[in-house]
Amino acid sequence: MSDLYYTDTELMITRAALELGNDDTVLVGVGVPNLACNLAKQTHAPDLEMVYESGTVDSDPDALPLSIGDPVLATGARSIVTMYDGFGRYLQAGRIDVGFLGGAQIDRWGNINSTVIGDYDDPKVRLPGSGGACEIASNARRTLIIAPHQRRRFPEEVDFVTSPGYVGGRKGRDERGLRGGPEAVITDMAVMKFDDAGEMYVETIHPGVTREAVQEATGWDLAFADDVTETPTPEADEIRLIREELDPDGIYTGGDE
């Protein structure tokens, strides 16, 4: 375990960055996914191509975007297209390798709910809905999910499937003609992957976190890899890039919190 100080959010950013390859094309929004993509681009994946939901292709922003409509995203972009073209000609056409997702609930099959908590017709909470998330989950070659690890956020079954994961298993996804599927779930406690059946399991546990704590924060009997290991800690240069160049004001990382 490293003596380097880092926050839970910084660990999530650095771990998500490791999931990205040099030849990947990523559909990305703002916040933690944006920081993970830019960190990857400045370290091990200089040719990573970022397509923002607002329609900028291969952007190289010189400042932190505050929304997907921030004009800074036009900086250095190879092209700027409409959202219709971005989702139609890139995502639905199968040209996006990786999509980032989050949600209010994620279940054991990687299904995501961002629509309602409780019964759809009489919900306890009505949420914003899909936006582009269902399209990303259905069409990207693989998806990465980033979320805080809380029992209410990880139920055995979501209240509503806004964005499909492996549905009830990989066969269920295949029967619906969906591309790809979730590849990793990165939380502030662990990194989880999906087995041959399409069910989530723990691959690594973050430093200082116990198996019991991860299980307690999960709403089903969670599987653990036979060789579960400790999540690699961030490198000093990665933390420097995040704090000094990517998010110096701590807008998404929380600064010194």
Rank of each mutant, 00 (worst) to 15 (best):
K41Y: 07
V98M: 06
G86Y: 02
R243H: 12
H44N: 07
A93R: 06
R89K: 12
S138L: 04
P61L: 14
V26A: 14
R142N: 12
A190M: 12
D226W: 00
F194D: 03
K193C: 11
G181F: 08
T75D: 13
R243T: 06
H149E: 01
D58I: 00
D107N: 05
V30F: 10
F194H: 07
L144D: 02
V209H: 03
Y166P: 03
V167T: 07
P232A: 06
V158L: 11
D107R: 03
D221P: 10
L11V: 07
S79E: 15
P33N: 08
F100E: 06
L178W: 02
D256H: 12
N38F: 06
A104M: 11
E244V: 15
V158Y: 02
L48F: 09
D47G: 04
C37M: 13
R141M: 14
L27E: 06
T218W: 11
D85A: 12
V116A: 09
P248C: 11
R78A: 15
M1C: 10
G131I: 06
V161N: 09
S54K: 09
P248A: 03
D62A: 14
S67Y: 08
V57Y: 11
R89G: 01
L91F: 02
Q150L: 15
I136K: 06
Y52C: 04
T231D: 04
D70E: 01
K193V: 09
E49R: 15
G88Q: 14
C134R: 15
T9E: 08
E49Q: 15
S114I: 00
D195Q: 09
D119G: 02
P65T: 01
I106F: 01
G102C: 07
N38T: 04
R179F: 02
V98E: 04
T75Y: 03
Q105Y: 05
A74K: 13
I136D: 02
D107I: 08
D70W: 05
Q105I: 05
R126A: 10
T75I: 03
P248E: 01
Q150G: 13
T229C: 04
L246V: 07
Y6Q: 02
M50S: 06
D256V: 12
I239R: 00
I205C: 12
D221A: 14
I136Q: 11
S114L: 01
R243Y: 08
E49G: 13
I239Q: 09
E175G: 10
V28M: 05
Q42S: 14
D58Q: 06
T233P: 10
D256R: 13
A217R: 15
Q92G: 00
N22F: 00
L18C: 06
R153E: 07
D195I: 11
P232G: 00
L73V: 07
V81E: 15
A190Q: 08
L35Q: 02
D221V: 13
A63P: 02
D47L: 14
T43R: 03
G177E: 10
S130Y: 09
V28A: 13
S114R: 10
L11F: 02
A77V: 00
D227T: 13
A36I: 00
A217Y: 05
M189E: 04
A77P: 02
D226Q: 03
W220V: 05
Y52L: 05
S79I: 04
E244F: 15
I96W: 08
P71N: 05
D159A: 12
G165S: 01
L4Q: 08
F87M: 05
W220A: 10
D58G: 03
R15G: 00
E245W: 00
